[in-house]
């Protein structure tokens, strides 16, 4: 029994509408700091993803299924490439944009509403793609 894609996006959208302060406090209680995660990618793991996605070829990085912009903002901050963050729920994307702006990354980042099944980009655009718990 695999639930419908739309149910998944609807559920995520409801989560993104919840007060950010509440999530932040919960994160601090759980991990000692708040980075904007609401899933299972903790800071150490995100640091590893940022390192592994460091561009070997020139080009922007794609954060696939960015949610509220985590770990996208860390990948953008640690690297030198521009970052494009995509997901379906617009509520999450608004938070992602705020996260990038709050960290002075808005000139190097772009947020796009898109389903990953048909990516709105030309072939051979990106240097690397980062994803966390998207294919499940």
């Amino acid at each position: 029994m695999i639930r419908d894609h739309e149910d998944v996006f609807e559920r995520q959208a409801r989560r993104y509408d919840r007060p950010l302060d509440t999530w932040a406090e919960l994160e601090r209680e759980a991990f000692g700091l708040a980075v904007g995660s609401n899933g299972y990618t903790i800071l150490a793991e995100a640091e590893e993803l940022a390192r592994l996605s460091e561009a070997k070829v020139a080009g922007p990085v794609l954060d696939l299924g960015t949610g509220r912009g985590w770990p996208g903002w860390l990948v953008a901050e640690r690297g030198h490439s521009n970052l494009v963050a995509i997901d379906v729920p617009v509520a999450g994307l608004r938070h992602a944009q705020e996260a990038f702006t709050a960290r002075g990354l808005s000139s190097r980042t772009q947020v796009i509403a898109s389903d990953g099944m048909a990516l709105p980009f030309a072939s051979e655009t990106f240097s690397s793609i980062v994803h966390t718990d998207v294919f499940c």
């Binding site: 993803l49 070829v57 099944m117 690397s128 980062v130 994803h131 966390t132 718990d133 499940c136």
Partner: peptide, 22 residues
């Protein structure tokens, strides 16, 4: 979705991530 990822990656590019699976 992974095939789409490959399409948009430059030669020499990488896809890196974590996923829950059985």
């Amino acid at each position: 979705m992974l095939r789409e990822c490959r399409r948009i990656l430059k030669p020499g590019g990488t896809v890196v991530g974590v996923s829950i699976h059985t």
